[in-house]
């Protein structure tokens, strides 16, 4: 029992670290594209570690299935949304540049 709790605590602390890193990155990075990089760290690793820790703590198979489906959907949604946001901003920037040149 003790070992299980220790592993849960370690996983949650690592997850919290990645969330802090993501938030600080979103706050401090200079432009949108580097902020997207910080966001994916929190999405993939932060939520992943916390999901692993809570799955270990809760332990019932149905809940574990749900927790991992949450993580899987977040992986899919966050990588796609990063690409979409970046493309959106790039098209906007290009349009503005063309206007300034022309």
């Amino acid at each position: 029992m003790m070992i299980k709790e220790v592993i849960t605590v370690i996983l949650l602390v690592v997850g919290c670290f990645f969330f802090l890193a993501g938030t600080l990155g979103v706050l401090r990075f200079p432009d949108l594209f580097s902020r997207l990089h910080a966001l994916t760290k929190a999405d993939n690793l932060g939520l992943g570690f916390i999901a692993a820790g809570m799955a270990l703590h809760i332990g019932s198979p149905w809940a574990v299935l749900k927790i991992f489906s949450i993580w899987f959907f977040t992986l899919l949604a966050s990588s796609t949304s990063c690409y979409l946001i970046a493309r959106f901003q790039k098209e906007k920037d290009q349009a503005r540049n063309r206007k300034e040149e022309g």
Partner: peptide
């Protein structure tokens, strides 16, 4: 017009 956009919509609709 974006293939990734279409695929993610196709994935999330049944979910």
């Amino acid at each position: 017009d974006d293939i990734l956009l279409r695929q993610v919509i196709l994935f999330f609709t049944p979910v």
